[in-house]
Amino acid sequence: MTEQVPFKADQTPFGQISFADNPEPRCPCVLLLDVSGSMQGAPIQQLNAGLAVYRDELAADSLAAKRVEVAIVTFGGSVQTVTEFTTADAFTAPTLTSQGDTPMGEAITQAIAMVTDRKRIYRENGIAYYRPWIFMLTDGGPTDSWKSAAEQVRQAENAKALAFFAVGVAGANFDILKQISTREPLRLDGLRFRDLFQWLSSSQQSVSRSQPGEEVALQNPATPGGWAKI
């Protein structure tokens, strides 16, 4: 389908100008969410509420809704892809439940593989894209082996293949998070998942419309009143 633009329909100085039918550029993001047993109760409820806010805010931005692609991978007992990459306008927030241990290493490896594969699909289909994000949230530490996952994150960050963010809820093992994430892990203030996801959504809205040469300056969430502490 090619869009015909009736330019000044009654005078048409340039006639019918047709627009190339290119797909929107994509801004992929994997939400890597800890749903282990310790998240039970208020944390998982607040996480679910935060996801709903995230969905609503992205969908309300017409450009971001078509450009931001979300995938959700959870780790709790096992690693599961709850949502495959989908544009924000087609994304529905899942209701997550908590169980089991914390296979974080495996989850990170899977998220990196998904991002790599997604970029290949973009390239094969002539879709322009922005640097992918992996955004990990946890209230604990890995119960599986994580060193090779950390090495993969480090290599991918060095190659600018993706941007990895880690946010720890109370109880998270920051010693290990610091060894995994090349960016300083952030500490969630209480259970302010809602504020966190509002920030994530607005950051991705900025990235999804950024122009060449524009390093998007993310709003610092660790300012007084913000949802995070370093």
Partner: peptide, 23 residues
């Protein structure tokens, strides 16, 4: 770029340019 170039084929979208030049 998004309206005047064809990203899949990596070429110019002729139907974008032709009407301008004709006029």
């Amino acid at each position: 770029q998004l309206v005047a170039l064809n990203f899949a084929e990596r070429n110019a979208h002729a139907a974008f340019f032709r009407p301008f030049f004709t006029t």
